[in-house]
Amino acid sequence: MTETALPTPQIPERFADCARRFNTRFEQYFRELADSFDAPPSSRFTPECLDLLRDLSLRGGKRLRVAMLYEAARLVTPDPVPGLEEAALGVELLQTHGLVHDDIIDDGPVRRGGPSTYYAYREQFPDRPQDALGLAVLAGDLALVLSLRVLLDSPAPPSARHAMVGVLSAAASAMIAGQITDIERDFTHLPSEELLHAVSDYKTAHYSILAPVQLGLLAAGEDPARFDAELRRYARLVGIYETMRDDYLDLFGDARTMGKSTGSDLRDGKRSYTITAVLAAVNGTERAVVEAALGAPSCTPQTVAAVREIAVSRGVEQKLRADMRRYAELASAEAAAWRPRWREEAVTVFEHLPLWSVERLM
């Protein structure tokens, strides 16, 4: 390849531009959906459901899945390809589905700086909690169906459309298996590294990294099945450090920056990478402090701060940072091996994305 590699500082700029353009397209999608959605004309709840999905979908997020999808197509060609916009819509609608159901499972009141879909319904129907729950479940289900429907309506060739639906449905299935395993993990006092990685792989990597790359390649006319093993290795490594990053921020992050309170994993009794590392590092009085806070909804910000101080003093924060860096470097090396096969510029993005993501935290 004779192309010039994309300078690393341009990657955030490029991703931000991609997010802006996609957000405009996403807004257009929801406007068109509101006009065309088939529902009983007398139904008031159906338009409200669509409004809540629209609000959550457009409220935030860096659209890294979308950027990865477009960059995957650029691995093959710099030219526009049919079906790429619809693939991006499908991936983000699947993300919306996951967020709605995740907040139901976790009883989460806040998402992306606003009320979760579940809590929006709870606020609207305070005297009918079961109906609020049911409506939230159905909203998440609808987002999943819409994610597949948008692919079926794409202008991609029929064979590509069929393959894309297969990729996204497999990602959705993996996400659900990951959610189940996530709950199963929290029945274990001290999960193994293998179990933690499995949750990350299925709950995050399959739909956030692997599926966007596969969809981008398919839209560009490449068969991702030819490179399945290496794409899965890359997705798994990125998924591990991204999950570690989210878990890290839940204890060590800034609530104002994240748009939600810290310590939620601790209060919910979740055996995340961070909480598992803290449990493995403490004993005696410190262990008693951590275990008293674990799974206690009444756990105060002061208690969260105390657990954070214990984690720092026991080297947990430093260890997590080192682990994130290690997995990011492994992912970067995996992508660098794509260079002889695909376009230099796009390979550079996949090579430097893991390191850029970790450096933002450091």
Rank of each mutant, 00 (worst) to 15 (best):
residue 2 T to Q: 15
residue 6 L to V: 14
residue 7 P to C: 12
residue 8 T to S: 15
residue 10 Q to G: 07
residue 12 P to L: 08
residue 12 P to A: 08
residue 16 A to G: 11
residue 17 D to A: 15
residue 18 C to M: 13
residue 19 A to D: 06
residue 20 R to T: 14
residue 28 Q to K: 13
residue 31 R to D: 15
residue 33 L to E: 09
residue 33 L to V: 10
residue 34 A to K: 15
residue 35 D to Q: 15
residue 37 F to S: 10
residue 38 D to V: 12
residue 38 D to R: 11
residue 39 A to G: 13
residue 39 A to C: 13
residue 45 F to C: 08
residue 53 L to I: 12
residue 54 R to S: 14
residue 54 R to A: 12
residue 63 R to L: 07
residue 65 R to G: 03
residue 65 R to W: 02
residue 69 L to K: 02
residue 69 L to M: 10
residue 69 L to G: 03
residue 72 A to R: 04
residue 73 A to S: 14
residue 82 P to W: 07
residue 84 L to H: 09
residue 90 G to C: 05
residue 96 T to P: 07
residue 96 T to W: 02
residue 97 H to G: 07
residue 99 L to D: 00
residue 100 V to N: 01
residue 104 I to G: 00
residue 105 I to S: 06
residue 115 P to F: 03
residue 120 A to H: 05
residue 122 R to E: 05
residue 123 E to V: 02
residue 124 Q to H: 13
residue 125 F to L: 14
residue 130 Q to G: 06
residue 131 D to N: 09
residue 137 V to Q: 08
residue 139 A to P: 10
residue 140 G to C: 06
residue 141 D to R: 03
residue 144 L to S: 10
residue 144 L to C: 13
residue 146 L to F: 11
residue 146 L to T: 05
residue 147 S to E: 10
residue 148 L to T: 11
residue 151 L to E: 11
residue 151 L to A: 12
residue 156 A to M: 08
residue 157 P to F: 12
residue 159 S to R: 14
residue 166 G to E: 13
residue 167 V to D: 09
residue 172 A to V: 02
residue 173 S to Y: 13
residue 176 I to W: 11
residue 186 D to P: 01
residue 189 H to T: 09
residue 191 P to R: 03
residue 205 A to N: 02
residue 207 Y to F: 03
residue 213 V to S: 00
residue 213 V to N: 00
residue 222 E to G: 00
residue 225 A to G: 05
residue 234 Y to Q: 01
residue 236 R to W: 09
residue 243 T to A: 04
residue 245 R to V: 02
residue 246 D to F: 01
residue 253 G to I: 00
residue 257 T to H: 14
residue 257 T to S: 10
residue 260 K to T: 01
residue 264 S to L: 04
residue 264 S to N: 09
residue 267 R to Y: 00
residue 271 R to S: 04
residue 273 Y to L: 01
residue 274 T to H: 01
residue 275 I to H: 00
residue 279 L to N: 02
residue 282 V to E: 10
residue 289 V to C: 08
residue 290 V to Q: 06
residue 290 V to H: 05
residue 293 A to Q: 05
residue 300 T to H: 06
residue 300 T to R: 03
residue 301 P to V: 01
residue 303 T to Q: 08
residue 305 A to C: 03
residue 306 A to T: 11
residue 306 A to Y: 09
residue 312 V to G: 05
residue 313 S to D: 09
residue 313 S to P: 06
residue 321 R to F: 12
residue 330 L to Q: 15
residue 331 A to I: 08
residue 353 L to M: 07
residue 354 P to E: 03
